[in-house]
Design a protein around this nucleic acid. Structure first.
Lengths: 241, 241
DNA sequence: CGTCAGATTGATATTCATCAAGATCGGTGG
DNA sequence: CCACCGATCTTGATGAATATCAATCTGACG
């Protein structure tokens, strides 16, 4: 699927778009580029002149520390407008990295600013996307601060599954998730060893499988129950915005 | 200071505003209201029709869990447009609570939407404010996941001091911070007992004082050094946005 | 067959939570 | 003015959660 169609679909999950708006999105000029796993898509400290929409693969935002530690603050999947932030922030306070092989579409900031000027509603919709990112961050913080490692992992899996399902990348309790346990550790703020052990425990109590980059969930509801997952924060409802 | 002047100042830290834009902001109709400490400013699950700008006092965003736990995901001070999120998200996935006595200004969503339609640049500036919130969240996540409790507290103090200084509420190493240790614990994802002990350690190694709601920092630089604080993420620079 | 990244496991140390008990302090009613 | 009260801060003792260090195991792949 092309970048604009992906974006249109992502937006239409949250609100109706007029034919004219859809046209405007289709008219956005994009430059496509592939990244290998581990490659930096946007460097921390840089000042990008374009924003990146993820067409396929997994990407993450990361903050790196002096001592070599890193915190992944967000995971992104196909259809996510990964780097709208740079549009307003100008200087990247974090990096975006490919967690699997990725295909990206870049849109010039000038084109996006133009779009926000001529289409206030689309402007709000893009704003909305970043606000949903914020809501996801709130849930991650809640997990890190107040949920057990087990619940934390379960919650992340529920979130990922829900998001993947929306874009047609998950179904029947199965989804591809080519994430290393170390990546998971950096995302959840835990050590990789602890992730390994907790994952083992989770497999045992919830008949869940995570092998060769594929997660299989026996019962999503049971998993959601376990970690008190409520998808409301993902804003998967059409509403005038 | 009035709500609009506060907002104008907050925005002008990040970009220049035209006289006409300043006029438009001044013309925003606001309704003011006071809240006592502990009072809910915006209820989780509600669907506000107006957004809240903090005129004075401290407020927090909080996510509550089944088991009675809570995670505070953001702290807000005078000048912060606390609840722009509701403008797009419609349903609150979290609550906003007064952490001290607060004075708030509410702006109707209809007025804000109107503003975003007629003033694309102001629209982007409001968007920017929420993106800065996001950047702050990233730092908090980094602290929670990868910094020690000591560094985490130090980092929060550095951030708060920097933000307070901008709006003229801190100077000479002193600022008012009427926050309970329990509030701090809920914000950092730690237990209140642990906060107490770590705070004691921090007082000893960095000649810092926190008494009767007033924080005194002997050397900001030393504190910043301790936790690797870099204010870049707060976007305290004027730039065309 | 060797290599390498990732997963797994064991042993041990550290950090942090929990439970319980004072201590401090501002406010309040008598 | 004083006794009391509740909220907050403080401290100690103990246990659970998690990190760290060090091997070993597995599987893909040249």
């Amino acid at each position: 699927m092309t970048a604009s169609e992906l974006l249109i679909r992502t937006l239409m999950v949250r609100d109706k778009l007029s034919a004219e708006e859809i046209e405007a999105l289709r008219a956005l000029p994009v430059r496509e580029r592939a990244f290998g796993r581990g490659e930096a898509i946007v460097e921390a400290g840089s000042e990008p002149r374009e924003s990146c929409l993820l067409i396929s693969g997994f990407a993450g935002r990361e903050v790196l520390l002096d001592d070599g530690g890193r915190q992944i603050t967000a995971l992104h999947i196909a259809g996510d407008f990964v780097d709208l932030h740079a549009l307003m922030l100008k200087v990247m306070d974090h990096g975006v990295v490919a967690l699997s092989d990725c295909s990206c579409a870049f849109v010039q900031h000038t084109a996006l600013v133009q779009l926000t000027s001529t289409h206030p509603h689309l402007s709000r919709m893009l704003w909305l996307l970043t606000l949903i990112d914020s809501a996801v961050q709130r849930q991650w913080m809640t997990s890190m601060g107040r949920r057990s490692a087990l619940e934390q992992i379960a919650h992340l899996i529920c979130e990922l599954y829900t998001r993947m399902e929306i874009v047609g990348l998950a179904r029947g309790g199965q989804m591809s998730a080519p994430l290393t346990q170390t990546v998971l550790a950096d995302a959840l703020g835990l050590s990789d060893v602890h992730i390994n052990r907790t994952l083992k425990a989770l497999r045992q109590i919830s008949s869940l499988t995570w092998k060769a980059g594929v997660i299989s969930i026996a019962s999503f509801d049971a998993l959601a129950e376990l970690c008190d997952f409520d998808p409301g924060y993902l804003n998967l409802v059409q509403r005038p915005r």
